[in-house]
Amino acid sequence: METHKKIMVATMGKYKDDLMEYALDIIQGRKTEVIGIYVVETSAPFLTPKKVRQMIRAELRKRGEEILESMQQEFQSSKHFMVNFRKMLREGDPAAEIVKAAEEEDVDLIIVGTGKNIIDKRLLGSVSEKVVHSAPCNVLLVRTR
């Protein structure tokens, strides 16, 4: 099996623990660089008031920082000494930003969750699907429910 030296764990908050568990399982005690990425999705329909857009952006940034902080605490605990963790908070289209960041950072593996159930995927589309289609590296799709 290919060993991964640089892994990107992409999360929107939900299923964060599942993704981290899989990441640690893959790392298996090897020295690995892990980038936790959270993308603030700034898109909103045309008639959404500007103040609401600002409020949504501020709220999502706050949430993203909290999620990344909690990931950092877990990955940097003494039992995971082999992990060199880094936070990354970006804004824009989640799938596009994850792929762009993976290219820029030259990561070996992106770990994402399958996310929503079938109804939600049909209604809203899936970030993971888009990442799988255009990722520059291997993608581990963790089945999350």
Partner: peptide, 23 residues
Amino acid sequence: TAPEFFTVLTSAKKGLNSLAIGT
């Protein structure tokens, strides 16, 4: 109510529940 519609729908989809119901 179009501004409410887009505000509530967008915030609910992004999981910002307080903003959705509060609006």
